[in-house]
């Protein structure tokens, strides 16, 4: 790897880690998700620090070119994340529907009670 590429990658990784840590610190992210992001960040750091390690692993696993393994891992991780988010979204939308229904039913009950109260005070 050329020095200039390595420097660029280190800078990008630093920014990436800073963003993740800031998001976790400001409680913008759930802990369960932050673990995922921290691990990806650590993998990046390791990959840059010891480039031979990645090359050796990819050879061991039988990839012809190192970059293939990186793409492969990246795509799998992305799929996993999308899958997880999809499940979470489905759950949330169900919760949302119930909330809207219950609030609307409560509104209705309050309105009905108020109407009754008004009638009684008019009598």
């Amino acid at each position: 790897m050329q020095i200039s590429l390595r420097v660029a990658l280190i800078l990008i990784t630093l920014v990436y880690m800073a963003l993740i840590i800031r998001a976790i610190k400001n409680k913008k992210m759930q802990i369960s998700f932050s673990v995922f992001w921290i691990i990806t960040g650590l993998i990046l750091v390791i990959a840059i620090a010891i480039p031979n390690a990645i090359q050796n692993i990819s050879k061991m696993l039988g990839f012809e070119v190192t970059v293939n393994m990186i793409f492969c891992v990246a795509i799998f991780l992305s799929f996993y994340l999308i899958f997880k988010l999809n499940i979470l979204y489905s759950k949330e939308s169900k919760v949302n529907i119930t909330l809207v229904q219950e609030i609307s039913l409560l509104n209705k009950r309050i309105q009905d009670l108020e109407n009754k109260e008004n009638e009684r005070s008019n009598d």
């Binding site: 229904q101 219950e102 609307s104 509104n107």
Partner: peptide, 19 residues
């Protein structure tokens, strides 16, 4: 009953059943 958000036919009908 006035739903505070649009839920679609299923969510609306279920509100009726809850009522």
């Amino acid at each position: 009953i006035n739903l505070i958000q649009n839920l679609g036919i299923g969510g609306a009908v279920q509100t009726g059943y809850k009522y």
